[in-house]
Design a protein around this nucleic acid. Structure first.
Lengths: 251, 251
DNA sequence: ACGCTCATTGCACATCTTGCAACGGGAGGT
DNA sequence: ACCTCCCGTTGCAAGATGTGCAATGAGCGT
């Protein structure tokens, strides 16, 4: 809606991919160099971009700080954290917390590392592999039918592994099942040797506000053994839901 | 420099503190509501802000993703990571990696958790307590004399603990010492019971490009015992420096 | 030393942004 | 149930603001 701001913001994803020179930025925006310069200048003053020694630009530290602060101020996160730690202590596995946001993105907003030496690669703030991750399935299974359908059609279905969700139809079927049963899994769909088990966290309005999961590599526990932890994960999610909905707000 | 973009960007730190309504945003910017609305709209389209159910705005998931991507594309980070993991494996303590950016901010860009049950609170992306953290001392000790002085004067010196750096003079003296000896510590200056030991990572130009540290609470190891790990930390930093400067780039 | 590329600045034009005023809808009070 | 108040939203005209051009300067490789 605002041309200038729109252009300025289009610079950020470009720089996220790696450093770029003024000329590259101008070309990307399809504007004159002087225009790009002024936009970069403004972004720079706000610490959103950083000018490295070779005069190329990359994203600035301010961005990290903002993202950080924003995540910490999320309600769910603060409430859920102790429960996630407890779950990690009882199972030893990596625990994740994720939320969905209209922009078609699911992101991890908290993580407690596995106590086993094998660690999986994931990071807070990272967009989740939406077509395969257990937490993503739960979050999307909750969006209204029509939207969900349109959304599924629009997605890419990367074949991370042989078990990855192949297409929209398979995904919608999976979402229906997940919705039905109230929990979700990802058995080797993202990384061949890693299994996840997730449960939904409900807000006061009954809708799915977040989802938490435990993940473990095959070498530590097999898929069936992981599934035996289902009651534990579900109970954790329910405890968080209750607290989030304020059903036990008192002292 | 660009008024519109400037206004749009001023919205972000406001929202980072917590959700705000349209009216609040407009008041904060000192502009008409309709103006604020259009800016928010543009930010929204880019996923930078999110509109919650109560119609108030908060920062959006896109921001997390951008920050994430930007951090992962930092050279130092990729190079340093395996070394940090190795250091963690040998000592068991929490390992941090931090960089400095002109905007007067030092941020953690990587972290490997302690293997001991006691964990410290810190998070990737978080701005570092600049006046006390060991990594901050190393990074600032390297900026040119004049700038360093001006900078130190401008800072606040929060008394986190009794051992926190009290004022600019003390800080400058500490920086001089750190510069001299080539490593830094924070002995209970940030949190009473936590000690850190940091070493500098040099870029190809010889300047300090980053710093890494190990941290441990008193209950696990005392300050003097932590200091015995100095050679290990220094060697880790040197290894990263060598690789970063391309002094052993080959196959 | 020369010529190249790339960042930077001043300026006049017009485009895009701005604030106003009017509309609409939801919540809360009577 | 009605009315009223508050807040978000929209159309529009005025002009401030952002834009592209062309010229300057800095840095680098030949």
């Amino acid at each position: 809606m605002s041309q200038t701001v729109d252009r300025a913001l289009r610079i950020l994803p470009l720089l996220a991919e790696g450093p770029a020179s003024l000329a590259e930025v101008a070309a990307h925006l399809d504007v004159h160099k002087s225009t790009a310069l002024r936009l970069l200048h403004t972004l720079h003053e706000h610490g959103m971009v950083y000018r490295q020694d070779d005069q190329r630009y990359r994203l600035g530290a301010r961005l990290f700080g903002l993202a950080q602060q924003a995540m910490e101020s999320l309600d769910v996160r603060g409430i859920a954290h102790p429960h996630l730690v407890a779950l990690n202590e009882r199972t030893g596995h990596t625990v994740h917390l994720a939320v969905h946001e209209e922009g078609e993105v699911v992101v991890y907003i908290d993580k407690v590392e596995s106590r086993y030496p094998v660690r999986m690669y994931s990071r807070i703030g990272k967009p989740v592999a939406i077509t395969v991750a257990a937490v993503a399935k739960l979050l999307l299974a909750d969006v209204p039918e029509a939207e969900r359908r349109a959304f599924a059609e629009r997605l890419d279905y990367p074949r991370y592994t042989a078990k990855s969700t192949p297409d929209a139809d398979a995904y919608l079927a999976e979402l229906a099942r997940v919705r039905e049963q109230g929990w979700a899994t990802d058995l080797g769909g993202h990384e061949e040797s890693i299994n996840c088990l997730a449960a939904p966290i409900h807000g006061a309005d009954g809708r799915v506000a977040a989802a938490c999961s435990i993940s473990a590599p095959n070498v530590v526990v097999g898929a069936d053994e992981l599934l035996t932890l289902r009651p534990l994960v579900l109970r954790t999610a329910e405890a968080i839901s209750r607290e989030l909905s304020g059903k036990e707000e008192d002292v």
